[in-house]
């Protein structure tokens, strides 16, 4: 008997997501060596930890109850699971003419890219676990064991942070409908992310005016918030989660409008 999506739309949608995840996971497993290398390339927080450990800022902020080592180790984990490259893939698919067959399928294209990112993160789990084990041997005094509930909550927050970061990039990926090399925007997006997310330094070490500006953007909630949560620092969990949800919804609205305009402008070049 044929499946009836109108009557079982939710079940149909779940089946589509499950199939896409299985498919993309199988694809990512083909690139396991590359994923290990990509995971290794995400060690910037560890480099920053090494740099900050050589300054007196560490003593200064640790006096205020802030554990710098824990923060950067947590930032390392958060960064591993919030990597987004959708602008690159979307641009490549448009330029190579690969977008067309998927555009003609009755499922929003967004889910193909979103599930592909999640599948990559699932593939990354054992690699990151191994890296954490190695770090725990190298830096035994810096390690701590978060509570189970904290881990579950942090996993949820990281997932939410990843979704918001993905939505930022997805919204900008829509510019591929108008410009041929939208990946240049990705490079531009990296600058506010580096400084406002707390990747190069904890936001609380910034001058007050700068940190106030940072909190007006979504970036501190993408890395600083989950990293502080994982490292056991005091954060307003409810408020930060609400802000993440707000950004996800706002960006969803923006990207949906951009998608509708972009598809009209699409020339299906190369296809």
């Amino acid at each position: 008997m044929s499946y009836k999506p109108r009557q079982h739309k939710v079940l149909w949608f779940l089946r589509v997501i499950k199939s896409l995840l299985i498919n993309q996971y199988a694809l990512m497993m083909e690139y396991r060596a590359e994923i290990a290398l990509w995971a290794l390339s995400g060690i910037l927080p560890l480099i920053m930890l090494g740099l900050w450990s050589q300054t007196n800022i560490q003593d200064l902020i640790e006096l205020q109850g802030f554990n710098l080592k824990r923060y950067f180790l947590s930032a390392f984990v958060v960064r591993q699971f919030t990597v987004v490259w959708v602008i690159f893939s979307f641009e490549e698919d448009i330029v190579q003419g690969r977008l067309s067959p998927f555009l003609l399928q009755p499922v929003p294209l967004f889910w193909r890219y979103y599930t592909s990112h999640i599948a990559e993160q699932i593939t990354r789990v054992p690699i990151v676990a191994l890296m954490i084990m190695i770090l725990s041997v190298v830096l035994p005094n810096s390690f701590w064991l978060p509570k189970f509930t904290e881990l579950i909550l942090t996993t949820f927050v990281i997932f939410l942070a990843f979704t918001v970061r993905f939505m930022i990039h997805w919204a900008f990926a829509m510019s591929c409908f108008w410009v041929e090399r939208a990946s240049s925007i990705e490079r531009l997006l990296l600058i506010p992310y580096l400084f406002f997310s707390g990747l190069v330094a904890p936001i609380d070490t910034f001058p007050k005016e700068i940190s106030q500006i940072a909190y007006l953007t979504p970036y501190p909630y993408l890395l600083s918030f989950p990293a502080n949560l994982l490292s056991g620092h005091h954060v307003n969990i409810q408020l930060n989660i609400m802000i993440l949800i707000f950004w996800a919804l706002f960006l969803f609205l923006i990207s949906t409008l951009a998608w509708k305009k972009g598809v009209k402008h699409f020339t299906a070049m190369g296809a």
């Binding site: 008997m1 044929s2 199939s19 896409l20 498919n23 009755p106 499922v107």
Partner: peptide, 21 residues
């Protein structure tokens, strides 16, 4: 990089075709 069947199974889900069908 995947066998055609993997992509075909995704199409089946997208078009709401039951596994037996």
């Amino acid at each position: 990089d995947l066998p055609p069947l993997d992509s075909i199974k995704v199409n089946a889900a997208v078009y709401g075709i039951s596994p037996r069908e």
